[in-house]
Design a binder for these strands. Sequence first.
DNA 1: CGCTTATATAAGCACATGCTGATAGCTTGC
DNA 2: GCAAGCTATCAGCATGTGCTTATATAAGCG
Lengths: 118, 118
Amino acid sequence: MHAFDVLGDPVRRRILELLADGEMTSGSVCEVITAEFGISQPGVSQHLKVLRENGFATVRPEGTRRLYAVNSEPLRDVDEWLGRFRRFWAPRLDALETELARGKRERRLGRRTGESEG
Amino acid sequence: MHAFDVLGDPVRRRILELLADGEMTSGSVCEVITAEFGISQPGVSQHLKVLRENGFATVRPEGTRRLYAVNSEPLRDVDEWLGRFRRFWAPRLDALETELARGKRERRLGRRTGESEG
DNA sequence: CGCTTATATAAGCACATGCTGATAGCTTGC
DNA sequence: GCAAGCTATCAGCATGTGCTTATATAAGCG
């Protein structure tokens, strides 16, 4: 499943928004989503599965709960794809942003050497 | 149809990539897409329709041809949604980018006063 | 072990989406 | 007007995706 297909679903986008503020249990996500979208617990769980299996979220068990967190790599890929079009709305900043992107990419690759993740 | 749904289709993403290099006729787009994806002319035309109706592309008739071009507004919206997550892969540049985004937004709103679109 | 809570999976149904072949609508040129 | 070329639309079919209910798995607790 392509990154854009994953983001194509409003429920999954909302879940990512929630996770952007920090780790959440499946149950907490479920509370919000069932309230906002009126879908069932299995429905939410299936969306979490899609996010997991496509690398948008990571899980960490804690007792009987499961803590979900954002994994940003696929989002970064989407951002890079968008980069091709960024000049349409930021023509003057194009050069600067190219530089920023280059810096990002270098840090991203260099990160494996032991820097901490924000 | 939400912007992310539009971008969820690989054919539509490819068409946007083509249009990013400049205006193209429906026929030229069709040539590339049918070659790369093996779908028919009506199939391509339907994708162009989706891009049109959701504001990702504009059309300009020229004789019997139709010239398509990128319209970046929906892409910009996608970019802004992604902004929420950008701190995950660019923590240090967060503040700077927030500034850049603010500047962009102001120019974007001010553009209606008569500036040209890139 | 049996009960409860938290979460995931399974089976089945409904609907949306994308594809194709056929065809319609314009525009140009004779 | 008629034929040809380019593009769009239509009708119908197939497949994928998301939802629901029911159930399985796993941990905590008595």
